[in-house]
């Protein structure tokens, strides 16, 4: 597949600025995403990491503008080129979805419709999004897409239950790429897959990324997946980004106590067997987030100021583009 995408890696594909998405519930507003900013450059992958309930999936749904009815973008901008996605009408947004930005949903096992053949589902994605494509050429393209992700085109005649977990994940990727988008959002790719199959899927994604010069937003709770695929990462906690920057510096020297906790949660085969570390407690209720720094109730290095004042994001660490929101590094 050829692409006429610009190879200029300085070109910003998506620029999210101070985005806030709240859900209205009977008990009050849930501030699921509360003022996050990040950029995705052309051909670059950014990993949004955090625990369940930190707002990472809401971020994905917000970018696609497919929030549930009680979800609302409260403020902020999402610039795709010169268009602000938060301002577009539903009809205009349809021109963006799948052709400019597409998404691979969480749960490869359940994201395909079990009643339709895999090939037909990819064709459906093509013909609904591109009006002037004939059925015949849509089928041809679906075959090519399957080939691109390493599945024999003839397997498009199979139903999802005839596919293994890894193949279903590949088929979903094929479907998301069918209309040649610039930006791919992947929500928890590879989780729920075995380690070997997961490694195969990640390898495929990294090949596609360089082959098609794709930009990606990768959403996961698993830092190892980000280490494999992304150039940049943003660590989310309770609706905020607590640390952001290039992957190598952040993984080598995590500054925020939360990032440090996340990266220590892996058992390593290279080191001597030790007790695995974890972060005590669970993420806060976003109806009433903790005062000051939202991580303070779980933080091992908590100071009096953390309970009172929210830390500002400041440049920290050795990384060129490493930013941290923590009072330890003068974020006051």
């Amino acid at each position: 597949m050829s692409t006429n995408r610009s190879n200029d890696s300085n070109l910003t594909v998506l620029d999210v600025r101070d985005l806030k998405t709240y859900y209205t519930t009977a008990r009050g507003p849930v501030k699921a995403v509360d003022g996050i900013s990040f950029q995705v450059k052309s051909g670059e992958a950014i990993g949004l990491a955090g625990e369940s309930g930190c707002g990472k999936t809401t971020t994905a749904l917000t970018i696609m503008r497919i929030l549930p009815n009680n979800g609302e973008i409260v403020s902020g901008e999402m610039l795709l080129g010169n268009k602000d996605l938060t301002k577009l009408k539903e009809k205009q947004m349809r021109q963006i979805r799948w052709k400019k930005i597409s998404i691979v949903f969480q749960g490869a096992m359940n994201a395909l419709n079990p009643l339709f053949k895999v090939g037909d589902q990819i064709v459906e994605a093509i013909v609904t999004n591109e009006r002037n494509v004939s059925k015949k050429s849509a089928y041809e393209r679906a075959g090519k897409m399957l080939e691109l992700v390493g599945i024999q085109p003839s397997r498009g005649r199979n139903y999802p239950h005839e596919f293994s977990g890894g193949m279903r994940q590949r088929a979903l990727i094929a479907m998301a790429l069918a209309c040649n988008p610039d930006l791919l959002i992947a929500d928890e790719p590879g989780t729920a897959l075995d380690v070997i199959v997961q490694a195969q899927v990640l390898k495929l994604m990294s090949e596609l990324k360089s082959k098609l010069n794709l930009s990606m937003v990768l959403i996961t709770h698993d830092l190892s997946i980000i280490a494999e695929l992304c150039e940049k990462t943003a660590i989310m906690y309770a609706g905020k980004i607590v640390e952001q920057g290039d992957v190598i510096s952040i993984f080598k020297e995590p500054m925020h106590p939360y990032t440090q906790g996340l990266s220590r949660a892996f058992p390593s085969l290279k080191e001597a067997r030790r007790r695995m570390m974890s972060i005590h407690g669970s993420p806060p209720d976003l109806l009433e987030p903790p005062s000051g720094c939202r991580f303070h109730p779980r933080c091992s290095k908590v100071m009096p100021i953390c309970k009172q004042k929210e830390p500002k994001t400041t440049k920290a660490g050795k990384g060129r583009n490493q930013y941290v929101a923590c009072h330890l590094y003068g974020g006051s």
Partner: peptide
């Protein structure tokens, strides 16, 4: 070889089965 590690310098996908 397929064990996940949070280390961007050690790619586990290189020689994957």
């Amino acid at each position: 070889d397929a064990v996940p590690t949070p280390d961007p310098t050690a790619k586990r996908t290189k020689g994957v089965l």
